[in-house]
């Protein structure tokens, strides 16, 4: 009875307002926890955290750090897409490729990211962060797309054969729309992984001015407020990048499906 009433009430609230309410609730919880602990050195308050975010945002160095971190993560992510998409397509065509790559990809998935970061430090002079982001995203996109190819409606492929669809037409009208849900899911999770692993790599590898270096400094100088502020910034950047990428992907797939604004 109470649950039904609460569910009805929740459904009546518009989605943005629901999100704002949830955010306010957790900010409130955050503030309460801070008040119980009562020390900015152990647990920063929401107020001091957001104040610090604005202080950081007023400096040129902060934006430089953000740009570098975005570049590292994005480079690794895009490189992973460039490698894993053709690899999954080849696997769908030649099963032995899956036989070859499957153990390696399982190994990458199971290996702790910290081990890869240290190994990458031994192997590479530059690009450790991008390499780590790349390693985290490849198995994810590859396995999702392989599953997409596996579950593809073979009836549509036969239909395309009967009606003599060109290769481009098949890709545009059958392969891309069929694989898109798998690709979107992989990219959504993959971007989050790339950010997490990328920042961890920055903290360990310290590749010049980055958000990871600032987190490292916060650790050294026990600047808990800085750590909280930088974490908020990274979360916001990760969400913005995911939303922007998903929007771009949606527009692109619509454009491809409609043949660049014409029709099927």
């Amino acid at each position: 009875m109470i649950s039904t009433m609460l569910n009805k009430l929740t459904n009546k609230i518009p989605k943005p307002a629901r999100l704002a309410l949830a955010l306010v609730f957790w900010l409130f919880v955050w503030q309460i926890v801070y008040m119980i602990i009562g020390s900015d050195i152990i647990f920063a308050s929401p107020l001091s955290t957001f104040k610090r975010v604005f202080e950081l945002a007023a400096t040129l160095e902060f934006w430089k750090n953000c740009a570098n971190s975005i570049f590292h993560v994005l480079f690794g992510f895009v490189a992973a897409l460039i490698v894993s998409i053709p690899l999954a397509a080849l696997t769908a065509r030649f099963k032995f490729i899956n036989l070859l790559f499957s153990p390696i990809l399982k190994l990458i998935k199971a290996t702790p990211v910290a081990s890869f970061i240290v190994l990458a430090l031994f192997w590479l002079k530059n690009g450790v962060v991008s390499f780590i982001a790349f390693l985290m995203v490849v198995p994810l996109v590859y396995s999702n797309l392989s599953e997409g190819f596996e579950n593809m409606d073979k009836g549509l492929i036969e239909m395309a054969k009967v009606y003599k669809f060109s290769f481009i037409k098949k890709v545009r009208l059958i392969y891309i729309p069929s694989l898109m849900p798998y690709f979107v899911a992989a990219c959504s999770v993959g971007l989050g992984f790339a950010w997490k692993a990328g920042i961890a790599a920055e903290v360990i590898a310290l590749p010049g001015s980055t958000l990871g270096l600032e987190i490292y400094n916060a650790k050294i100088y026990i600047e808990t407020v800085d750590l909280f502020a930088l974490t908020v910034v990274i979360i916001v950047l990760s969400i913005i990048m995911e939303k922007a990428f998903m929007w771009l992907l949606k527009k692109l797939s619509q454009k491809i499906l409609r043949g660049g604004g014409k029709n099927a």
Partner: peptide, 27 residues
Amino acid sequence: SFMFQEDRLLPWLSAWENVACVLNKKS
């Protein structure tokens, strides 16, 4: 031309686009 036992239509396209996609004519 083959009308299959199952419809085998492209679910992401409209009815007219499903018909038009097999034609090799101007848009």
